[in-house]
Amino acid sequence: MMQKIVNFVQDIYNTKEFISLHEPRFIGNEKKYLNECIDSTFVSSVGKFVDEFEKKIAEFTGVKYAVATTNGTSALHISLLLAGVQNGDEVITQPLTFIATCNAISYCNAQPVFVDVDLDTLGLSPSSLEKFLNENCEVKENRCVNRITGKIVKACVPMHTFGHPCRIDEIKDICDKWHIVLVEDAAESLGSYYKGRHTGTFGKLAAISFNGNKIITSGGGGCIITNDEELAKKAKHMTTTAKVPHRWEYTHDMIGYNYRLPNINAALLVAQLEQLEVFLQNKRELAKEYEGFFADLTDIEFIKEPQDSRSNYWLHAVSLKDRAHRDAFLKFTNENGVMTRPIWTLMNRLEMFKECQCTDISNSVYLEDRIVNIPSSVRI
């Protein structure tokens, strides 16, 4: 069976050479805009491409404001600070996520609390969230307080895993009821929609990533999206070292961060955005081929977009029978020129988060044992 899978992947990518998990594609105006940026000499955090990118990404996602940052982690860090997360607070998230989610929480000197994911979305489960809150928390003076730790639960950060939207509307309703700020980790879900709305538009703020392996990239890069004008202005100020505007004086009015996206990176992203619809369509076509192929195989299941969703299929994934089958699959494919990788180690297993409060996470454990990502690059 595994040789058949390797042969199929080689056929759809039309190569016998090593096939990466996810490679960037530069097939448009990237070199043209980079040259234009270099010729302008505005290659750092000021320039027309930064402004153009922010405008276009806001239009694409359907929000009023976007603030470009150096990467998705910095975007999430600032989003959490703007949500009011402070030293000693708690932030609810999922254990099945990339480390950046929990790192950003830790940068705020806050602590993650882990609730389970749903098997079909791979993202934070509304029922697990509600169960945790009902059993452990209470609302005091319009703040959610964890009765077990005595700490304030300030925010909730669901992550749209591999670009598959979680049940974000239900999560929002729960957060509103419990006076918890919803911040979406939409790092992987540019071009994904839930019930017709782009991911990242349900929470007060959201973070998107443009890392080298994302659906569009500038080598790095990220952005904050929001419909709140005041938060957007503050985000831009904080990410530009909190410098008070002046023609020559250096005055800073708060602790700021050097998180603004350079113009030269934004030039790449403007060009990449012009190809985004092509990339999204290509990924959906690839998903259809994978779905048809794996439907005929036993003990392996292709992960499809959840109900009410339109996924960007950033990383395609399959679920194996158990951990032993998963490990055998990983070994065979990687040794035969097809890059595959397991899903992340659960956050609560990592040394720095092993003492964090954690609910029953049976679904997360089940998925950790079985999920493997398979080649997902856009085909030219």
Rank of each mutant, 00 (worst) to 15 (best):
W248F: 04
K204S: 15
N211W: 03
V270F: 06
K243S: 12
D253G: 11
K233S: 14
G196D: 13
R197D: 10
I215M: 03
G212M: 03
L205K: 03
E274K: 10
I215H: 01
H246E: 12
D253V: 12
G222A: 09
T226F: 00
N258T: 04
L268V: 00
L261D: 05
R260G: 08
L268K: 08
D228M: 05
R247D: 14
Y250E: 13
G200H: 02
S218T: 11
T217L: 02
L273P: 07
K214I: 02
G203D: 07
I264Q: 07
H198E: 05
D253K: 05
G212I: 07
Q272V: 10
N227L: 09
F202H: 12
N213W: 04
G221E: 06
T217S: 02
P262N: 15
A271P: 01
H237G: 13
E229C: 06
K236N: 15
I208A: 07
T199A: 09
I224C: 10
I215A: 01
Y250K: 14
V244E: 06
L205V: 04
K236D: 11
V244L: 15
A232K: 05
N258C: 06
I208C: 02
E229Y: 10
T201V: 09
G256N: 03
K243F: 01
R247I: 12
R260P: 01
D228N: 11
F202G: 00
N211T: 12
Y250P: 00
I215V: 01
T239W: 03
P245Q: 09
S218G: 14
R247S: 13
K236F: 09
K214P: 00
A235F: 04
V270L: 13
A242S: 09
T251R: 14
K234V: 01
H246Y: 13
T241Y: 02
K204A: 15
G221N: 12
I216H: 05
H252Y: 15
E274M: 07
G219C: 05
F210Y: 05
K234G: 01
L261W: 08
L205W: 00
N227D: 15
T201N: 06
K214E: 11
A235D: 00
N258S: 15
A267W: 10
S218N: 09
T241I: 09
A206W: 05
Y257N: 03
N263A: 09
G200A: 03
G220L: 08
P245N: 13
L273W: 05
A266Q: 11
R247Y: 15
E249W: 10
Y259K: 10
E229V: 10
I255M: 15
D228C: 11
K236S: 15
S218C: 15
P245K: 10
N258L: 04
G203M: 13
G222T: 00
D228I: 01
N263Q: 06
D253H: 08
Q275K: 08
I255H: 02
I225C: 05
H252E: 03
T217E: 12
T241L: 12
K204L: 14
I264C: 03
G221Q: 02
Q272I: 11
I208N: 04
G203A: 14
E230A: 12
A232Q: 06
N263D: 15
G222S: 14
G196K: 07
R260C: 08
G221C: 04
Q272N: 06
L231M: 14
I255V: 06
G222W: 01
I255T: 03
N258K: 07
K233Y: 13
Y257S: 01
G200K: 00
Q272L: 03
